[in-house]
Structures are given as C-alpha cells and as structure tokens.
C-alpha cells in the first residue's frame, strides 16, 4: 500500500508504532492477566519486584503495580483518544467556520480562541476539573477545552488557503451549498495535517491526565498511571518501583505516539515527500 510504503521510510516511526501496539495489547488484555480490581489489596505492602508474587512489586497498601499499569493503560488510551476526538471535532468546526467565512465570524471566533490560548493549559485544566467534580468525564472535558484552540488555528489556516482555490470556486459556480463545500471539497484536502496534529495531541492529553491524577484530581474510581505515581511519591526512596514503572509506561507511550505522529507527518505531508 502506498501509505505504508511512505510511512515505512521513517524507521523510528515504525518502532513507535510497535511500542504503541504493545500498549494497546496490554490495555486489551488487562482483564485477562489481572482479572482482579487493581485497587484490591493483593498481598504484602511494599514488596519489591519479584517478591511475594508481584512481578513489578506492590505499593504502600499492597496493590499490585503491574495490574495498575495494565489497567492504567486502558485509562490513558481512552482519555487520550476521547479528549483528542472532542478537541479535534470542536477545533475543526470552529476553525473551519472562521476560515471559510472570514469577516466578522472569523474575528469573533479567533478572539475567543485567543482568550483560551492566553491561559496556561495545565492550570486551566486543573481549574476546570476542580470546579466540576473530578470524574472521568470532567477530565475529558478539561483536556478537550484546553486543546481545541491549536486545532482551530490550524484548520482555519488550511481553510483560508483552500477556499480561494479554483476547484472551490468551480463548486460555487455550479451552486453548491456552503456546508457541502466545506465538508466534501475542502475538509478532505486538509485531513493530513489534522491527523498529524491529532496524533500528537493524544500524547499531550495522556500527559495532562497523568498530571491531574498525580495531583489527586483524577477519577477516584479508576486507576491511572498518574495516580500510581502520586501514590508512590512519598515512598520514592524506600520503594522506588511504585513510581518508576508507571513513569516508564508514560514515557514510552508518549514517546511512541510522538514517533508515530512524526511518521504520519512524513508520510502525509506532500512537501516533505520529495526530500528522500
């Protein structure tokens, strides 16, 4: 396949995809290997890796770190994916409208976008989660709210450059409606940069979620990597494994997603394609 041929040229992107697949497998098989609730007290607290049947050790309350990582992978991927989907949807809608219509619609929408961009995103996310009750929904909303302006800017730029192209003018001349022009003529032509930006945004979303959970603003009923690190923070010197393994999981996942994003960019961006 053409796309795969282009993607394969970037070796590190293939490597990233392999890691990402492993994370997906881990998330998918979590219930199989660790059927118990990751919050359950499985054995002796503070067991080192390999001791008492804990492959990656246990934390201060005797929860299995390995089970937490497996179940946490689900949380991370789900929140990363959902929050990005919401942000991209919102960003494409607002950016598309602003770029396509221009004029006062553009002015208004872009000023609103700028207001969102002036607030540091992590602090803004904390604020939102703190105002709404910490739950999986509020975390997703918070991440989406701080992430969409970047997409909106990107999509607006693409729409502005495409809306005056001759093929779009040809659609106006046959009397095609605005919605149809936006969705069927312009949008397919700017999917590549949106996909690339979206893939990188998943990584940021996972980081924000981990940060929120670390600060105790995560959903208390769902295990996540950030929560695990937060729980192990106080015993970092006596039980290093509690923080370290979830940390490595975050590092590898975010790295893998970034590599995949780079690879997508190389494969989908026609300007880069010729620089072999």
């Amino acid at each position: 396949m053409e796309f795969w041929r282009l993607y394969r040229r970037n070796r590190s992107a293939v490597f990233g995809m392999i890691i990402l697949l492993v994370v997906f497998l881990l998330a998918g098989s979590a219930a199989l290997f660790f059927p118990d609730d990751p919050f359950s007290l499985a054995g002796k607290p503070m067991s080192a890796p390999g001791e008492n049947g804990f492959s990656l050790g246990s934390d201060t309350l005797g929860r299995d770190v390995a089970a937490g990582i497996a179940h946490g992978a689900r949380t991370s991927l789900m929140i990363g994916g959902l929050a990005t989907a919401v942000a991209v949807l919102l960003g494409v809608m607002l950016g598309g409208l602003a770029g396509y219509f221009g004029g006062w619609i553009d002015d208004v929408l872009m000023r609103v976008t700028e207001i969102f961009q002036t607030i540091p995103s992590f602090i803004f996310a904390i604020l939102i989660v703190a105002i709404i009750k910490p739950s999986i929904n509020s975390i997703i909303i918070a991440i989406a709210v701080v992430s969409w302006p970047a997409v909106a800017r990107l999509v607006r730029g693409e729409f502005i450059s495409l809306r005056n192209r001759e093929f779009v003018q040809a659609c106006h001349i046959v009397g095609m409606g605005d919605v149809r022009i936006m969705l069927r003529e312009i949008l397919p032509n700017c999917l590549s940069p949106i996909i690339v930006a979206g893939s990188l945004m998943v990584a940021t979303a996972i980081l924000i979620e981990s940060g929120l959970s670390f600060l105790g603003l995560g959903d208390p009923n769902i295990i996540s990597w950030g929560f695990q690190i937060g729980a192990g923070r106080t015993v970092l010197r006596s039980a290093w494994w509690v923080c370290t393994f979830p940390g490595i999981a975050i590092l590898l996942t975010v790295l893998a997603i970034n590599l995949v994003g780079e690879g997508l960019n190389d494969a989908l961006n026609p300007r880069l394609r010729d620089h072999k």
């Binding site: 192209r165 001759e166 003018q169 046959v174 009397g175 032509n189």
Partner: peptide, 24 residues
C-alpha cells in the same frame, strides 16, 4: 435566486492543476 441561472453561465479556469479537487 441565482440558483436557476447558475447552470446557464459556466466557467473554465486557468490553472488545470488547481481547478480540480485532488481528492475527488
């Protein structure tokens, strides 16, 4: 109001590379 007249007046563009949607 313009719609019924759209089909009567049609246009051919200059740049054959920009005037066709590459994704259609």
């Amino acid at each position: 109001a313009m719609r019924p007249y759209r089909s009567k007046i049609q246009m051919v563009f200059q740049d054959p590379y920009a005037s066709l949607n590459p994704r259609s």
